[in-house]
């Protein structure tokens, strides 16, 4: 006898959202590297917190999506 089918939970995050956040993360990472490499004024380093948190958040979303968390 087959086990009763449980209703499938709706995904909270769709594939296209993950793709978009991945692209934004990549752009932020490239911006981070560019600033670290070519900056001529230390004031540019003030944007590091926002860029880093963005990159880490996008990376976390991609990893959790890969692990089928959503």
């Amino acid at each position: 006898m087959n086990a009763p089918r449980l209703p499938q939970a709706r995904p909270t995050l769709k594939g296209r959202h993950v793709a978009w956040s991945g692209m934004v993360g990549l752009v932020l990472l490239l911006l981070l590297i560019a600033i670290a490499w070519r900056a001529t004024n230390a004031l540019w380093f003030l944007v590091f917190p926002a860029l880093l948190i963005g990159v880490v958040a996008a990376g976390a979303i991609a990893v959790l999506w890969g692990l089928r968390h959503f």
Binding site: L32, I35, A36, W37, A39, T40, N41, F45, F48, L52
Partner: peptide, 10 residues
């Protein structure tokens, strides 16, 4: 170089 300082911060 400023890049060294950026690497320190990162």
């Amino acid at each position: 170089d400023l890049t060294t300082e950026a690497v320190k911060i990162l």
